[in-house]
């Protein structure tokens, strides 16, 4: 039984977010979209009056995670651009909310995903947008390399000419 640990994997991914290491990011983002979303739904439904700001922030962070998940899962230029914006919003969110939650505890009587820089979630909310942005930058560099390769050797049917951005 040589394949008990699985058949050999196919070669390195072609730099899309829909397969390869990008899948891990999608899985992480999906988990957080679900966790933050469920938490926000429960909080808003049962105890909105106690800490409206914190609970609305939970809901907002859930939406951002969802947008990032969809952007990463779809891939392609528009998907990636969406993911970059979502990751940036997330990074700003976790830094601002993290700082505010430590500076002004009155405003955050109950925790959000981003409170204390994501302390309640093993600081993953702080690391996740950085990982996302690094990965997206890596993909952009792969794209650029592929483009310059195409420029060096134009295809016989002129495909490279058509694909090259003006």
């Amino acid at each position: 039984m040589p394949d008990r640990l699985g058949a050999p994997a196919t070669g390195p991914a072609d730099g899309s977010t829909s397969t390869g290491p990008g899948r891990v990011l999608v899985a992480l983002y999906g988990t957080f979209a679900l966790a933050a979303g469920a938490r926000a739904a429960v909080q808003l439904a049962t105890q909105f009056d106690e800490a409206p700001l914190a609970y609305l922030l939970s809901a907002f962070s859930a939406v951002v995670y969802l947008v990032a998940t969809v952007g990463l899962a779809r891939g392609g230029r528009s998907g990636r651009r969406t993911a970059v914006v979502a990751c940036l919003v997330e990074l700003v969110g976790v830094l601002v909310v993290g700082t505010l939650s430590l500076a002004d505890r009155q405003a955050f009587p109950d925790a959000t995903v981003w409170s204390g820089f994501g302390q309640g979630y093993g600081f993953i909310p702080l690391v996740l947008p950085l990982l996302g942005l690094l990965w997206l930058r890596h993909l952009r560099e792969l794209d650029r390399d592929a483009e310059s390769d195409r420029d060096a050797e134009p295809g016989p049917d002129g495909a490279a000419e058509r694909e090259r951005p003006s």
Partner: peptide, 20 residues
């Protein structure tokens, strides 16, 4: 996690399952 990892042809299938 299992369904996702089985549909993933690259070596990152295992990492997806590990996250789960």
């Amino acid at each position: 996690g299992v369904l996702w990892s089985r549909s993933e042809p690259t070596r990152w299938a295992g990492t997806v399952l590990a996250v789960a």
